[in-house]
Write a protein that binds this DNA or RNA. Structure first.
Lengths: 330, 330
DNA sequence: CTGAAAGCGCTAACAC
DNA sequence: GTGTTAGCGCTTTCAG
């Protein structure tokens, strides 16, 4: 099918292209009679306006770029849904730019994004932001960063309040006299783990204690399990705090195989709930993370920035909620 | 920062815009001296070509649309990675259009896609294709459909060969004299389950038997578990075949709580492997699905269609491989 | 209320 | 080799 343009519609309706444009955009009052003629022509020809040409003429594309590490897809389904749903509500299209840890040159992605002339860009990052994203700032492209606390004029950010969650958790246990709390650190989510450590430290400090109990190991679930299997032969803690479901499972398996009973001998809390935590036995106590909301809020922030660049509150912090299940004692 | 155009570069370098365009596209031989001047100007000004203007001029956007049900994100991380990686290799950008079961009007999404003037569109679908996608065909937009067997001139497709996998599996068990094989059907993945049933039926038939053992229930993991917990009070099978990891977990839990031992009393095979299948105990025997490849192949198919529209083999079928673990007997 | 025409930034003939 | 110019499809003044 030949691509039909606004000219074709104009000819068919016997008006000028300007008039067609007007009825398309519902702008000025067009005489309802001619309006009807035009609309008939549009449906008759099956005309769909060319968003590219509109983009050129208007200097805006109504698409927002999304920079996302592909390793984060699996546990961010809901976040992406939130992002997409809100984008759809405000009639924005999402241009997806994935980055692969250690493979993709971020510089290149940023270049692409700039070339594509998106109206704004949303960046998800588990790690402190790369230098090269500063280029986006220079080009005055509105940005919202997810998972990072960033302060700037044209940059907004949204993230989960892991720090307070850990403070709450530690406080509860310290109050019960439980001090041997271990945080498992995997380097995949620097921001999250640093917030967790910060929370633990400040909580311990507030009680006149010092927190320095954390396990660092090279990540990937297989080796987490293997690492822990050795580790638990000689170690045990009163409470283990891990970040993701896969780590919690590794703890569960490794502990069991070393005769450590959960929750009797050792308790376990996962900071990021997923549908799997309640599907294994024992069910894993965890914090629900408002992942969908995080996406939705971030995109809403973006649309706001795009509308009036004076957004009052450029930093959105979302809290998570503890779900007591079977890996913690009542 | 003011958006700088090809005119600015031309002025800065003291040449015409055509020359700048030439060095950008590395086309004709440009005198290396002027080429240098231009390149200097480009870097000095930080010029990035406007992809929108290019799109208008060239009548192609180098972006391909991806229509994806948001419910499928969680278990298709690798597929998306495959899609993205290959798109990047061939310098295509991906415009993401999500659809929410029962909420999104597919017609609207298709409209958006057409307006956006993508060069092609990749559609992931667990279900038989919707009528409204025919519009894409009418507009002669190259399509590749993932997870669906579709035949047409401008449509290619790629999918996993679940049918043969099930045939192989059933054959093995029938040969051992095991006939009580149950397939669990969740309506979320119509295409997969229908392929599985087809496989089972044809295998049984080839042995002079009739297969009609399948459980249909309204999906979602919670209720799967609850449903099975009741079901296993009065039922037991020699082999259960399920589609996804969450279903396998539900079987595992429900069976255990009804005193059914796996694999001793009942064996279990999951058709779609995930990282969780080997993280639970017992580890779940499963078929590895070449999910990344499925994405990569699909996108490759797309790029091929975009280059020379005469792609010889428009149907790619990928096989899966059985991984024997602890929920099946040796 | 409607039409004519000037861009938006770039590519691709077509000249020189 | 390099410059000129006519579009690509649409929006938006500016006239009428």
């Amino acid at each position: 099918m030949k691509r039909i343009t606004i000219y074709d519609v104009a000819k068919e309706a016997g008006v000028s292209l300007a008039t067609v444009s007007r009825v398309m955009n519902g702008s000025d009052a067009v005489k309802s009679q001619t309006k009807n003629k035009v609309e008939e022509a549009i449906t008759k020809l099956g005309y769909k306006p060319n968003a590219i040409a509109q983009g050129l003429a208007l200097q805006r594309t109504t698409t927002i770029g999304l920079i996302f590490p592909n390793s984060a897809f699996a546990y961010n389904e809901q976040l992406i849904n939130g992002l997409c749903d809100v984008a759809k509500i405000y009639d924005y299209t999402i241009a997806l730019h994935t980055i692969s840890e250690g493979i993709t040159n971020i510089q290149e992605v940023v270049d692409e994004v700039i070339k594509s002339r998106v109206d704004g860009v949303v960046i998800y990052s588990d790690k402190p932001l790369d230098e090269s994203t500063k280029l986006l700032d220079e080009y005055a492209i509105p940005m919202v960063v997810i998972g990072n606390k960033v302060a700037s004029n044209a940059i907004a950010s949204a993230y989960i309040n892991y720090e307070d969650a850990v403070i709450e958790l530690c406080e509860k246990y310290l109050d019960k006299g439980i001090k041997d709390i271990m945080i498992m650190e995997d380097r995949k989510n620097e921001n999250v783990t640093s917030a967790m450590l910060k929370g633990a430290r400040s909580c311990f400090e507030s009680k006149g204690l010092v927190f320095n109990n954390y396990l660092e190991y090279s990540s990937d679930e297989r080796s987490t399990y293997k690492y822990l299997k050795d580790y638990f032969e000689t170690h045990k803690h009163q409470l283990m705090i891990v970040n993701r479901d896969s780590q919690a499972l590794a703890v569960l398996n490794a502990a069991r195989e070393n005769g450590i009973k959960i929750p009797e001998d050792m308790e376990l809390v996962c900071m990021t709930d997923s549908k799997f935590t309640s599907m294994v036995r024992p069910e894993i106590s965890a914090y629900t993370v408002p992942s969908y909301d995080l996406g939705a809020v971030s995109m809403r922030l973006m649309t706001k920035m795009l509308k009036d660049d004076s957004v009052e509150d450029k930093e959105k912090v979302l809290n998570c909620l503890f779900l007591e299940r079977q890996t913690t004692k009542r």
